[in-house]
Structures are given as structure tokens and as C-alpha cells.
Design a protein around this nucleic acid. Structure first.
Lengths: 357, 357
DNA sequence: TTGAAAGCGCTACCAG
DNA sequence: CTGGTAGCGCTTTCAA
């Protein structure tokens, strides 16, 4: 049979209550007693019964990290950083059972699965939930998510938004901390950079239509065009998934339709890599014949493409930080619990040459 | 306060037992009663208390998927496939609370974290644990893992190995199903293919030294060389991480040391992409000047490199299948619960030209 | 500083 | 087919 806390208590000649106190380290226990208990735990190879303690304490040690696409290294790195931080942040020093179980849930960008996971985590009485990446822009779904989050918060679950815009400000928001990126400003700078170099025929490969990140970045792009007095030709913008294949397909179509393009902006780094591939496949050199610019969510991916102009979001460190704060402290980020991380323009290699010039 | 099963029972004018039966769908309930209960559930927006039911039933709905590197798309795809299958496979049809919570745990390749996660999952009384990817080859660690798995199995947790070699056969193995890849044969074919084309100066970029996948693939490579009577120059093999940077670094060093290499085998596809990058950076064309071959764990990544020779492991589908079987049925794969998936040789583009020939 | 005991919410066995 | 009810193992007052 499984070893229970009572068994440990018996062996250590103390009451179950005392064993519990030693394990949770949240109550004074005499050093000698403590030693005895810890010995018994070791001897019996005791492992806490999570469900039982979760039931009694009405909170579990589970932390759910929701990501849009686990196969996207961008989310992989985020999740990995958050997990590392959470694991490292053991609650009370000396506690045995204090470790959190940080766990990644892949929604695949599906609204239903997002809600399902939220319900599942609610069911488990999760200690915290971290929502990462762009949100889906559907009023019904947003409302459903907000309602779920309210329920979760009500039950004591800590909510953190990471790389996702803040919820519409409401009285008593359920969100503990929000970390959002200034996607508009980033995109504006990115396109602005290309415009400053003299580009005017600029293609744009956007993400899926119904995502906040997609919209915000596109808005920034258009704002930059408008500010420079460059007409925004809708045909120069194509939507697709946040992946390489989409970048290849979109760039191919853009260049077919308008071979005179001198630059392409990509909505994320994976797409940007695809655009480079498509350009090279047509015999275009990057950046001599075609400048490519993109959001560098994932530094390691684009570091090997020196010709890329990027806006870097310090997502990884920030994400980890948010996760850490969410779990170990009650601290909020700045006023309203919202911290906005500015975008940083990174220019690698030469992007100054305009095709035909 | 939170809505409990008793509240639902009260509203539906039935006993808690009946509500439980409706929710779990594991017992006959009159249609009318069932309807009444379901209505009450909806009305009250009831959500099962996971810990409570886990405690009572002494098993939870948690399924842990352990991966070596969540930032590696290879694992991302595996995990994602397994999650999809598990989510799709709702236990008893009509059950409300039957969904499993499939969750990814990132060990980062660290032995300690592997054990920690196993303990955490044990604590949660996980329904199943899926271990993916190569195992660490350290006797102490292997023993510790085996012991943990035994404990887990004892407590009813289902264990599945996926893309990982079977445990040393012992009486009453704790493992429900094992799905392993014939890495040796795959590597042998890969290198054999290059040898058949006439290559004799072949570099090899291996993974981390202490992994089973690393060793098996390297053994296959050497076996192929031996079979062809080609001397195995140890200097032509370099170890590194399973990532692109490592591929670039290793290929650079290999080509510096021996510019006459005509082919390079990479221990996984990400490394292979790095090797291609490094080759191109030196002005070598692939495959005209340098043939590159690699394990194609992740089809989508290498599909954009037509010149690559690869051995494809049908990991994704197989992994999903294993996860499904582990969770929904008790079926084992083949004798001993071990299914070995053969490697399939894929040759894209021309790899027939040998440099200098 | 420690012990005793009352639940936490659900499952499953035993009656009916 | 349905109800009653005894735990599951742990936490947490309340006393001592």
C-alpha cells in the first residue's frame, strides 16, 4: 500500500498534524521533532498525496502555462523559461512539498481548447495560470475567457498574462499581473526603418486575422506608412499562420503580384525566415535585392540570418519574471498590474541597399 | 462559495451518488434523472473538484508528458500530437468530467528535473506518464528512474515510453507500452547511402555524449563504415547539443580540420540545418560540394532543404498512438509491450555528386 | 510546541 | 436504477 502521512507520524512518534507542519514548513516545529519526522519521511520514502492536500487546503501546486503553439519555438522558450523560474522558486525554504508543478498546455490557437484547458485547470484548483501570446479577437470568446478567469481568480488561482494585451479594465480584474508588448510601436519602428532607407514598395506578411498580435503589428505598420505619406496598398498585405510555410507562400504570392517590391515586413521571425527562403528561391539576394524585416520573437532563430532587420521583444526574460512573480509573490507589475515592455529595434547587416537603386 | 456536487444533487432532487454517476457516465442512470442532473450542472455552472475526486478515486485525470527540450520543435510536435490524441479520447462517451488534462513537462535534459517531475506527477496521482526522447545513460540515474517508475506503476499510473529505448527487461516491468525507434539501423542506412554514393570522408555531428539516441545513432554510423571497410577517424566525429548552433559550430570545426570532407551526417535535423548553414557560409554548395544527411525528426523543418538526405522516423503519429493507447486502453504494443518503429530512408534532391569528383 | 478532531468534496460499496 | 454513507489523506482550528 501507499505510505500515508499517518504512517510517517506513527514512525516518528508524533501526530499527523506535526508531520503536516514539518512538510509545509509554515509553522514552528522543534528542531528535534522536525529531524525525527524528516527521517521517517526518508525511511518510508513518503510522497505527499497531492489530491488529498489540495482538497484539504483547497489549492493545488499546479501551475498551468497556456501556449498557442507548442511546436513554435517562440512559445517553447517562453514556457521553458517560466517553468525554470517556477521550479526554482520553491515556496518556503525547507519545505518538502512546496514545489510547484509547472506544466504546459497547448491550445493550438483554438478558442475551444483554450477554454477547455482553463476549465481543466479550474477543476484542479490550479495555483496559477499563465496565458501567453496573442489573444483571439472574438467578442464571445473574450467574454467566455474573462468569465472563466473571474471564476478561477475567485477560487484563488493567480492569473498572469504574458505577451498578451491586458483585459479590458474592469472593477476587480481577476488578473494578478499583465506583461504586454508594445507591438504597435515595434511595428511602426520596423516599417519606419525601412521607409527611412528609402523603401516605398513594402510588402507585409501578417499573422492570422483574428489575433491581437496580428492586428496591433499591422496597425503599427500602417501608421508608419501613413506618417511617411506612403499609400497603403491592401494588396501588399497577406495573412497567414505564424509559421515558415506561411512566410514562403505569402512572399511568393506577393512577389508574383508585384515583383517591384523592395522590402517585406514579416509579422514574426518564423515568417521572416520563410520570406528569406522564398526570396532566395526566386534568385533574389537578401538584403541586396530585397530587404526583409521582422519581429524577432526568438533571437536564436534569426541570429543566423545577418541580413535581417528586426524588432526584438525581450519576451523570454520578461515572461520568466512574470511567472516568477505570479507564483512566489503577490507583486503586480506597475500600475494596474500591467507592465508594457518596449520594443527594441535591432539592425543586423546592411539593409540600406534598395533594389534597382 | 464554490458549487459542490451536493449542491447539484440538491437542485436536481437526487442523491450525490447519482450526480457522480451521471458525471462519470460509468453507471446506468435513467434518462430523465440524467437530464435533470445535467440541467442542474448547467444552471449552477458546476465544475468538478479534481482533487476531491482524485482523492476518492485515488487517481487523477492528469497525464504528464516529459520532454527533453520544449524549445525543440521535435518535442513540441510530439507533445502536441499526444495532447491532441489524449484530449480527443474522452473516456466514456457522455461523461462530463472525463477529460484528461494532458500536460507537458520540460526536463531540459536534466536528470534531476526528470526525477523531480516524476515525483511531482506521482504526488498528483497522475493517470499516465509519457516519457519521450532519448534517455540519459547514467547507471545511477537509470536506476533512480526505474525505481520511480515502479512506484508510479504501483500506484496505478500508466507508463509509456515514446522514442526512448525500452527499460532493461525485468519481471513485472512498470511500463505499459514502449515505442522505440531503430536508431542504429537508421544511422546505418543513412551512412550506408552516402557510402554507396562513393563518399569516404564523412564527418559526423553527434548529440550529447550521455544520451541513448546519440550512442545508438553513432553506433549505426560506425557499423556502416566498418561494413564498407572505411576507416573510422575519431576526429571526424564531434559531439554537441541537439541544436542548430551546435550544428554550425561542429561543421565549422570539422571543415576547418579536414577541408576534404565530402559529406557530413548530423544526429538530428536541427543539427543538419546548422551544418547546411555552416557549409554555405564557407561558400560550399549543398549538395554539390558537400552532402549533408540527417535524421529527419521533424519533417517540416527539413522539407525546405531539398538537398538533404534523411532518415525519417514516424515519430509523430506513433507517439500520438502510444499516448492514446496508454490512456484509453490497456493494450500493449507487440510482445513485451515494445514496438519498434523502423526508420525510413528519404533522399531529397541529388546527393550523388561527390566533391572533386 | 504539540495533539485531537472536524471536515474538504467526491467515490463506491451496500442496501433497497 | 437510486439513496445512504463510510472513508480517501491531508489541513487547520482549538485546546492543552
Amino acid at each position: 500500500m501507499t505510505v500515508t502521512l499517518a504512517d510517517v507520524a506513527h514512525r516518528a512518534q508524533v501526530s499527523p498534524a506535526t508531520v503536516s507542519r514539518v512538510l509545509n514548513g509554515n509553522y514552528p516545529v522543534a528542531a528535534a521533532t522536525r529531524e525525527r519526522v524528516l527521517r521517517a519521511v526518508k525511511d518510508l520514502d513518503y510522497v505527499v498525496n497531492g489530491p488529498a492536500s489540495a482538497l484539504a487546503a483547497s489549492t493545488s501546486s499546479l501551475v498551468g502555462i497556456l501556449v498557442n503553439d507548442i511546436a513554435d519555438p517562440f512559445f517553447g522558450i517562453m514556457a521553458s523559461a517560466a517553468q525554470a523560474q517556477i521550479s526554482g522558486a520553491e515556496g518556503t525554504p525547507g519545505a518538502i512539498g512546496g514545489e510547484k508543478l509547472a506544466v504546459v498546455c497547448n491550445t493550438g490557437g483554438s478558442p475551444e481548447r483554450e477554454l477547455t484547458y482553463l476549465t481543466l485547470l479550474q477543476r484542479q484548483r490550479a495555483a496559477a495560470v499563465i496565458l501567453t501570446g496573442g489573444a483571439i479577437e472574438d467578442p464571445d470568446h473574450s467574454a467566455a475567457v474573462a468569465a472563466k478567469l473571474a471564476r478561477l481568480a475567485e477560487a484563488g488561482t493567480r492569473i498572469v498574462l504574458c505577451g498578451r494585451p491586458p483585459l479590458p479594465p474592469s472593477a476587480g480584474s481577476p488578473v494578478t499581473a499583465t506583461l504586454s508588448f508594445d507591438n504597435r510601436a515595434g511595428a511602426r519602428r520596423l516599417t519606419g526603418h525601412l521607409l527611412a532607407l528609402g523603401h516605398t514598395r513594402i510588402g507585409y506578411v501578417a499573422g492570422p486575422a483574428e489575433r491581437t498580435t496580428t492586428r496591433h503589428r499591422l496597425e503599427g505598420h500602417r501608421a508608419a506608412l501613413a506618417a511617411a505619406g506612403v499609400a497603403d496598398d491592401p494588396a501588399r498585405t497577406l495573412h497567414g499562420a505564424f509559421d515558415r510555410a506561411s512566410g514562403i507562400a505569402a512572399a511568393t504570392r506577393l512577389l508574383d503580384a508585384e515583383p517591384g517590391l523592395t522590402a517585406v515586413v514579416a509579422a514574426n521571425d518564423t515568417i521572416a525566415l520563410g520570406v528569406c527562403t522564398a526570396a532566395r528561391a526566386r534568385g533574389l539576394r537578401v538584403p541586396e535585392d530585397l530587404s526583409v524585416a521582422g519581429f524577432d520573437d526568438l533571437p536564436s532563430a534569426t541570429d543566423t540570418v545577418p541580413a535581417l532587420t528586426t524588432v526584438r521583444l525581450p519576451l523570454i526574460e520578461a515572461g520568466a519574471r512574470a511567472g516568477l512573480l505570479a507564483v512566489t509573490r503577490e507583486t503586480s507589475h506597475g500600475p494596474d498590474g500591467v507592465e508594457t515592455v518596449p520594443a527594441e529595434l535591432v539592425v543586423r547587416g546592411s539593409t540600406g541597399a534598395i533594389r534597382g537603386a
